[in-house]
Amino acid sequence: MRYQIVIAGFGGQGVVFLVKVLALCAGNRDIPFLGTENHGMSQRGGAVSCDIKVGEFTNPVIDNGQADLIIGLDPNETLRNLHLLKKDAYVVSNSDRPFPELPFHVALSDGNAKALAGEFPIQGLNAYMLGVALASVDNFPFSVEEVETALRQINAKVADQNIAIVHQAMREN
């Protein structure tokens, strides 16, 4: 398997958390993978995009036109990174507005509105969008059970809440 995922958002949204979750999913199945993250200055509220490449790769950076999927926690950050996607890739994004016509499979969900309505805390936006990806992406490389295991490994304290949010997203999308 070779599958390349871009995770986009801005500093503070928990983009790196999703990289860690997907990395654990791959690691637990002993599939090789490479991920890359933003730390330091690039994390301070600015645009953040992290890559994870599952399968036989030797470098962690996703080049233009190569990604199978983008999970975006912010509509502008999703749109900023479309050049990384290959033809017929999947776009899963938090968005309060429709996207222009794009040559991709697009799944949008207004996570901010749901958080504002008290359906989940905004800190769970990353877990929610992961659930949207599980629900909408036909070739998503990991099962919901694998995601649950990774969420428990990464932070047992908030795992139940995150898992509930993932399932909520899968029901709603």
Binding site: M41, R44, G45, N76, L79, R80, L102
Partner: peptide, 23 residues
């Protein structure tokens, strides 16, 4: 150049989001 992709015309420019002091 397989890494060259056509530029998407979204009909608008995505605003920059530089790093900033935290709220």
């Amino acid at each position: 150049n397989i890494y060259e992709v056509p530029k998407f015309d979204l009909g608008f420019d995505v605003p920059d989001r530089p790093p900033a002091l935290c709220p």
